[in-house]
Amino acid sequence: MGTNRRNFLKLLGTAGFTMAVGKSFGALAKKKSPVEFYGILYDSTLCIGCQACEYACAEEYGLQEPQDEPQIGVVRKTDETRRLVINSYDTSKGEQYIRVACNHCNQPACASACLTKAMLKTEEGPVIWREDKCMGCRYCMISCPFDIPKFEYHSANPKIQKCRMCYERIQDGKIPACVETCSEGALIFGKRSELLEIAKQRIYAEPEKYNHEIYGETEAGGTSVLYLASVPFHELGFNTKIQKTSYPELTKGFLYSVPAIFVLWPALLLGLRQATKDNHIKEIENE
């Protein structure tokens, strides 16, 4: 029965592709079916900071090999030459590593900001950038609360560089390069809901070892990349004050008012124009 319903909604969605009205039905249908995004779970307690993932990522995308190593006191940032970095922090539990890359938000600010849909949240979960659409306005960079998209400022044909969760590999049935290469099991790839379960089980099983929160469970409305660590996340350089609702939500109010104004304003203006038609006579007398 459940599948029947889903099929029906899917049909509606497909039909909607041809009609503007139907399109919003399609969106509704998508929301109703449980979202099964893929994600990555990173367990900082297992990470040994070997940078194997960094090397794998660089090789996969033809970027330069890492030029430096994680070091306490140095915040390495992703940039146009690296999509993934491992950082090291001196925490209340000694030296700990943390991975920094795109979090593949469930409702990404970057994708909702993009005026060409070059930045896209795929149905599988990865947020990908598409070269043939992007106009290089960098509004995605303004909007991303994690400062992830990076821009090639020194190129005449600049690209946006950011992690794409190896979208093409996933489609080929493989797992992301960084996950595949990690020999410590600090990275796992899977359905987001399952990863959440695993993360919770780990916290229950070893409550002493873990800090009792999963970064990414609710941050920015939930992200497809989830993090476990032994210490509170602000000690690892993460922004813990980030809002728990999605960022695109912030522009909803404005965007929703647009059609209303488009209908109301012209009518109002015409009305005013009629109402004030004789005004000028009075005004001239006043002068």
Binding site: A111, S112, A113, C114, L115, T116, K117, A118, D132, K133, C134, M135, G136, C137, R138, Y139, F151, E152, N157, P158, P248, T251, F254, L255, V258
Partner: peptide
């Protein structure tokens, strides 16, 4: 001048991606 890839500036007009959820699109 500020667009990194100005040759794609017509994309949101010709529909090579209508980013209707974007304020910048509007």
């Amino acid at each position: 001048l500020d667009l990194g890839r100005p040759w794609n500036v017509i994309n949101p007009i010709i529909g090579n991606g209508f980013g209707t959820s974007s304020v910048l699109f509007l």
